[in-house]
Nucleic acid binder design. Structure first.
Lengths: 148, 148
DNA sequence: GTAGATGCAAAAGATTTGCAGCCTA
DNA sequence: TAGGCTGCAAATCTTTTGCATCTAC
């Protein structure tokens, strides 16, 4: 995939709208997260830049991720053991099964759950923005080990 | 409610099982969280002890909460803006609507969602332990303010 | 030219840990 | 009595922020 024009434009437009600037660093960060499959932590990004001798500081990564979150290009998906995992939000929304033993993360999507959630929000006159459903437990492999 | 014998016994038994001790501090902490309705932060607990001149240190609160979490007497329910909220897990399980504007938390329970989750876990051969469903958005009041 | 961005180092919070002394079983 | 527990202070880890400098527009 890489830096597709569509997402880059979305980002640029949003920045302009807010009176912000499209800098070299912001472009680097957008590029990097679009190249990533699956989940990532801020620290991953910071280290990759360091290893590749690309000059983007930790603070800038944090600041930019906050903008991308606002924009909905990334989601903060999981909070587990004081770690925050992000993911690119361009694909269909999904939720997560998290294995407490091996840390594996399995994605799933259930339209029925989404619909029920919307129904509940209506009941409470609540305007949903995003949601996070995490089911913690043991994955197939770890379950078998435990029962073994 | 207060320190009911049932929960105290559960805690004591678990401690014994693990070769741990039932100390004055652990009893104080259990008592305090059982007396609380709704959600709490570690810091709340620490401050209350301080105000009441009860000698239980912050580290002990953290250490004990970790044990109570393992035991399932408390759940870590919400991670929001770098804050962790806990709740006593003795009542029926429920999920949360979190207002991003005023911070209000609305609890709800949907058996249908629970059932669907179980169905999904079966599909993936995943053994669920607990889950967390948080829907972020605007509550009725804040929504009206925004639209007003 | 100027408002906004960056990098750095420091600060702020949350949580954990090492250690010496204390207490429960 | 001994191994676990506590309080304290220090350490860790994540995230934010103040500031001087730089840069996109």
């Amino acid at each position: 995939m890489g830096l597709d024009n569509f997402t880059e434009k979305k980002f640029k437009d949003y920045l302009k709208l807010k009176g912000l600037r499209y800098t070299k660093q912001r472009k680097e960060i957008l590029e990097k997260i679009l190249n990533r499959m699956g989940h990532f932590e801020i620290e991953d990004i910071v280290l990759e830049f360091k290893n590749q001798n690309i000059d983007v500081s930790r603070s800038t990564v944090y600041r930019t991720l906050n903008i991308l979150k606002e924009l909905g290009i990334v989601n903060e998906v999981i909070k587990f053991k004081n770690k925050t995992l992000y993911e690119v939000a361009l694909n269909e929304h999904h939720d997560h099964l998290v294995c407490e033993n091996c840390g594996k993360i399995i994605e799933f999507h259930s339209q029925e759950i989404e619909d029920l959630q919307n129904k509940i929000c209506e009941m409470y006159n609540f305007k949903p923005n995003f949601h996070r459903l995490e089911i913690y437990g043991l994955c197939k492999e770890c379950k078998n080990l435990n029962e073994g």
